[in-house]
Simulated scan of single mutants.
Amino acid sequence: MDTLSRVVQMARLRGTVDIRCMVAGRHTLDNPEGGNGRSPFHLLLAGECTLELPDRRIALRAGDFVLLPRGTAHRVHTRGPDPDEPIERRDLGPYALLRGIRAEDTPVRGAAVDLFCGHYTWGPGAGQVLMGMLPDVLHVPLGTDAGGPLPLLGAFMRDEARTVGPGTEAVLDSLCDVLLTMALRSVSGVGRAAWLASTRGVVRTVTDAVVRDPAHDWGIEKFAALNSMSRATFIRHFGRETGMNAGEFLTRLRMLLAAELLTETEQPVAAVAAAVGYGSESAFGRAFRLAAGDTPARLRRAARQAVRGEGVSVLRLGPADGGEPSPG
């Protein structure tokens, strides 16, 4: 299984469409802070709008997907040639529809902006670790080319949203999951999320080896040997393909695997630490807290309480600032 498929499977994220906006005028949509375990997203299928964050503005065009892993409060400004107009809000069951109204109370046809707004939920575990590894804002242009995947997915989402029948919520939720996977695999360039999309031989070889035996004493020399490369050649290729050094990559994989063990098994924390290559429980705890924003014991406890429906909050994540030192 490739890196991205494995990570998405472990994370167990659940996507939901909250609102569909079909407006032709100029409007501002306020989005409060997402809250613990909730990461909002926007998919713009038509038109243009601006995402306003506390520290920046991002211009969005048709085909753009934006995910806010840490649930940052933000605004969406729609813009178009038409003046401001009243908006009708309708509750369609699975989601709410915001739609512009003409002066004569006729719904706008051919809306300039068609925007799906939703969120992904994740509980204590690998999903929490994955969101902590992503940048504060994940902005991915998926494109609108006829041969690309987004037009097909967008048409499916529009059709399902328009018909609203039995199973609509389940279908839209599943399409949101597909959307996130498409976005993660479309990440390009050097960045904190680029490693998820890499399908190059060097990254796949390292990933497969670590997933098979995370407790092994991995180092650059061993990774280089797996790829029949010199140390220098491996470092150059790996950095170019993932945007990070091998030590950081190794830590990320180990922490994802550790989160899965903590939430899906009854192994003691010390055993989980050993299973992912840490001889010291304290060293494992430090690395895990950097990746997950919580201690292994608290994350396990929160996961168990969440299963029991006790609504325990998960610590708000910050960016992953580091991990174990680079091997070798």
Results as ranks from 00 to 15, higher is better:
Gly100Pro: 01
Phe234Val: 12
Ala146Val: 14
Asp2Gly: 06
Gly328Arg: 13
Arg236Lys: 08
Asp55Asn: 14
Gly80Thr: 01
Pro40His: 05
Pro151Asp: 08
Leu184Thr: 01
Val203Pro: 02
Gly165His: 15
Glu260Val: 05
Pro327Arg: 11
Ser198Met: 01
Leu68Tyr: 09
Leu44Cys: 00
Arg240Tyr: 11
Thr168Cys: 11
Arg212Lys: 07
Ala193Met: 10
Phe249Met: 02
Gly63Tyr: 03
Arg212Met: 10
Ala303Arg: 08
Asn245Gly: 14
Thr78Asn: 08
Pro40Ala: 01
Phe116Thr: 03
Gly100Glu: 07
His42Pro: 06
Thr144Leu: 02
Thr265Ala: 04
Arg158His: 12
Leu51Asn: 02
Leu150Tyr: 03
Leu290Ala: 08
Gly47Ala: 10
Ala297Tyr: 14
Val269Met: 11
Gly148His: 02
Arg300Met: 00
Met131His: 06
Gly154Trp: 01
Val178Cys: 12
Ala11Val: 13
Leu134Glu: 10
Val8Leu: 14
Val137Pro: 08
Phe288Asp: 01
Ala59His: 09
His27Ala: 04
Gly123Glu: 15
Gly125Trp: 00
Ala59Tyr: 06
Ala194Asp: 02
Leu98Val: 05
Thr199Gln: 07
Pro151Arg: 03
Met229Phe: 01
Arg300Ile: 07
Met133Ile: 02
Arg70Trp: 09
Leu226Phe: 10
Ala215Asn: 04
Pro81Gln: 15
Leu138Ala: 05
Glu266Gly: 09
Leu115Lys: 09
Arg286Trp: 06
Ala197Asn: 03
Glu160Lys: 11
Ser313Met: 13
Gly239Leu: 11
Leu256Glu: 00
Thr50Pro: 02
Pro40Met: 12
Pro135Leu: 11
Leu315Ser: 13
Val211Arg: 00
Leu45Tyr: 03
Ala46Trp: 09
Gly189Glu: 00
Gly25Thr: 00
Glu248Gly: 15
Arg99Pro: 01
Asp105Val: 01
Asn227Ser: 14
Leu256Ile: 06
Pro81Thr: 12
Leu262Cys: 04
Ala146Asn: 07
Glu104Val: 08
Asp177Lys: 03
Leu196Gln: 00
Gly118Lys: 04
Asp91Met: 06
Ala270Trp: 04
Arg102Ser: 07
Gly35Val: 11
Leu142Gln: 06
Val269Ser: 09
Tyr278Asn: 02
Glu85Pro: 04
Arg192Cys: 05
Glu169Thr: 03
Ser186Asp: 12
Leu115Thr: 06
Asp145Gln: 13
Asp177Thr: 12
Ala112Met: 03
Arg20Pro: 07
Glu324Tyr: 13
Arg300Ser: 03
Ser186Trp: 03
Val7Pro: 09
